[in-house]
Design a protein around this nucleic acid. Sequence first.
DNA 1: ACCAAAGCTGATTAAACAGTCAAGTTGTTT
DNA 2: AAACAACTTGACTGTTTAATCAGCTTTGGT
Lengths: 219, 219
Amino acid sequence: MQLTHKPAKPRQARSEQAEQRILAAAEQVFATAGFGGATMSALAAAAGLPSANLHYHFGTKEGLYKAVLQNIMRLWLEAAEGITASAAPAQALSAYIKAKLAYSRTRPYASKVFANEVLHGAVHLQSYLGEELRLVVARKTQVLQGWMEKGQMEQVDARHLFFLLWAMTQTYADFDTQIRTVLGREALLEEDFAIAEDLILRFTLRGCGLEFPLKEHRA
Amino acid sequence: MQLTHKPAKPRQARSEQAEQRILAAAEQVFATAGFGGATMSALAAAAGLPSANLHYHFGTKEGLYKAVLQNIMRLWLEAAEGITASAAPAQALSAYIKAKLAYSRTRPYASKVFANEVLHGAVHLQSYLGEELRLVVARKTQVLQGWMEKGQMEQVDARHLFFLLWAMTQTYADFDTQIRTVLGREALLEEDFAIAEDLILRFTLRGCGLEFPLKEHRA
DNA sequence: ACCAAAGCTGATTAAACAGTCAAGTTGTTT
DNA sequence: AAACAACTTGACTGTTTAATCAGCTTTGGT
């Protein structure tokens, strides 16, 4: 927990490479084993390095875990950038759903690490959830309320709308084992994600009193 | 993993009580710490017993974990019982959503243990997912397809419909930390679940081309 | 009242674990 | 090419952990 850490100010970072490699491997191991279930030797084996090496770069197991989480957090807020007052609700919400679902397809381990952390009380993410995420949700909620006041979409609770969008899109990463088993697949295919996207869009847009299917403008 | 277990056939089970107590405590500990993060002494402390006692009743940590999971599985399939060919789609789906959401409210730890297990590859649940759950989904999927053929609801992919219903209802248990933080609450209130229920029903029913809000018949 | 069987527990053990360290190698600056 | 910092590593250490076990108490059948 406490630091016997990397020499406080490394004059120059020569081996960014090793750290990236460790982080990528750790994302997978933490995703499949959880924090408690991941051992330093498993993490080291996945990175192809001796475990002393991981301690050199990240100090402690918890330090490595936090670095992995921080890496993931960067991705999470980007997706919502298209939700602005001047955008059209149907297009903006569609883009958000597509972006979030794309993360589930391309970064399933990142999603799982995040899910695992929140599931167990988010002790390492309290500040992120309480500050950054809370702020983004507050801002985006105001955008949606603006749309509602202008009659561009129906009245719905905007915060709960986000909870449901997160749930529906992330479930395809977090619970892929269950989904794959029910579908009888080794791995989820593009067509599965296409069906999912269509259904989530249908639910969301119609739920908000918007048109579905979306008609392309400027085809 | 291997058994040095409870005397194969206990003539009489005298202390059902202790096992229930251990299981209830273990559900909480496994939910908040995960399998790897839970220690036998933490489990024992939560149950208010020495750890040798837990080993007496459940053999190994994994044995206890499996018993907790098995306990949870019983709950999971019951909720879908109302989905039958003769039922009205809107009523049956509403009842299912309400039942699943009620579990998120009343048994959040059970939901979390299940979520955690699936998240990490469901190694202890493969047979359940592949057999029982797969079968139930196959049957309920047929019921929905029957409704669609009769024009009682729109064409949607029934299996993905279930994935989204599970995601939306269980998120209020599994990710309650995130939801509570965004809402600025110490604990989720009845009114939060009421809003959630309303929004999930709205999404689902409209997404399936059904009437929302539902009109009570035989009021 | 007696006696098995079932239930309980403190003390112990062997293995797994996170973290340390000293001795090495590599790369960069002057 | 010398000097130094960044990096790498195998061997090691103290602690935590799951699991065991021998001996004790409680319970129910007769």
